[in-house]
Computed example of a mutant assay.
Amino acid sequence: MAFLPRALLLSLMAVVCIELSGVLADGPDRCWCLNTLKKRVLREEIEEFSIFPRRSKCDKVEIILTLKPANNTTEVVQRCLSPETKQGMNLQICWNRKNVNNTSTFKISNCF
């Protein structure tokens, strides 16, 4: 008799875990950009950028720049740019105007 309630409880917990894993897979559970650059990054140094709108777990727009490798390295360097800077606002305008396919990243050459 005691086995049936435990089995039901275990089944219920499994269903809840499966449902929650689907919800969490939709996006990050926090903001990616904890610190943002307030100064301008030279256009020649930027390879591509991504813009992430506000989400349920992050209440700010995030702009992530992927910089070109320096000194013949293969290291990928990413920096967060403040969306309130002039460069950040210009990138958002370009993104909204030209990103018709809703891609996750955008080449900087498409904006200039």
Rank of each mutant, 00 (worst) to 15 (best):
L9I: 08
L9C: 09
L9M: 10
S11I: 14
S11V: 11
L12T: 13
L12A: 13
M13L: 15
V15E: 00
V16F: 06
L20D: 06
L20H: 07
L20F: 07
A25Q: 10
D26Q: 15
D26A: 14
G27N: 09
G27Q: 11
C31T: 05
C31N: 01
C31Y: 05
W32R: 09
C33D: 06
C33Y: 02
L34R: 12
L34D: 11
T36P: 00
K38A: 08
K39F: 07
R40D: 14
R40I: 14
L42T: 07
L42A: 14
L42W: 03
E44F: 07
E44P: 01
I46C: 03
E47F: 08
E47R: 13
E48I: 01
S50Y: 02
P53H: 05
S56I: 15
K57G: 00
K57S: 10
D59C: 05
D59M: 08
K60M: 08
V61H: 04
E62S: 04
I63T: 04
I64N: 02
L65R: 03
L65Q: 02
T66W: 03
L67P: 01
L67K: 04
L67Q: 00
L67I: 07
L67N: 06
P69C: 05
P69R: 09
A70Y: 13
N71Q: 13
E75K: 14
V76N: 02
V77G: 01
Q78Y: 05
Q78E: 15
Q78P: 02
R79E: 13
R79W: 02
R79P: 01
R79F: 02
R79K: 15
C80N: 04
P83G: 06
E84D: 14
E84L: 12
Q87T: 06
G88D: 02
G88I: 04
N90R: 12
N90H: 12
Q92V: 14
C94M: 07
C94P: 01
N96I: 06
N96R: 15
R97H: 11
